[in-house]
């Protein structure tokens, strides 16, 4: 996690922080490694008003921790497009992301207990 906490050098870059029409430029390979369940959250370093439309909408959704799948569903864009979009936001420091690796260990006792307690609270 901590390795994604790099800080953007805002003051050294006067140009637009996110290239405007990245998604429609046909780039399909995200620079950050993201899967459907990678969680993202805005860092507070950039305001949505500093970004182009889709990037701004995605950033607004990232106020609370949210998965790539949810951003995709809310913006009604395929997951592949969302991964590119979010990795742009990671690159410019607007959001921080959980890389899918290392995967959470499914035998992790603490996590399994959190799962059990969280479910039982809903009964």
């Amino acid at each position: 996690m901590a390795d994604f906490e790099h800080r953007p050098l805002l003051d050294e870059d006067a140009g637009p922080l996110v290239r405007p029409y990245t998604v429609s430029n046909g780039r399909t390979a995200p620079t950050a490694k993201l899967d459907l369940l990678s969680l993202v959250r805005s860092t507070g370093q950039l305001r949505p008003s500093q970004l182009e439309a889709e990037h701004a909408e995605a950033l607004i959704l990232c106020r609370e921790p949210i998965s790539v799948a949810e951003v995709s569903a809310h913006l009604r864009l395929p997951a592949m497009v969302i991964k590119v979009l979010l990795s742009d936001l990671v690159d410019c420091g607007a959001v921080t992301a959980h890389s899918p690796d290392p995967a959470v260990d499914p035998t992790d006792k603490t996590v399994l207990e959190a799962l059990l307690n969280g479910l039982q609270r809903r009964l």
């Binding site: 921790p65 998965s67 569903a73 996590v111 799962l115 969280g118 479910l119 809903r122």
Partner: peptide
């Protein structure tokens, strides 16, 4: 392209179930 349904349960502040 495959459409997937999913849901979310916030288990506690540090754990989210998908």
């Amino acid at each position: 392209t495959v459409a997937l349904d999913f849901g979310r349960i916030t288990l506690d502040p540090q754990h989210i179930l998908y």
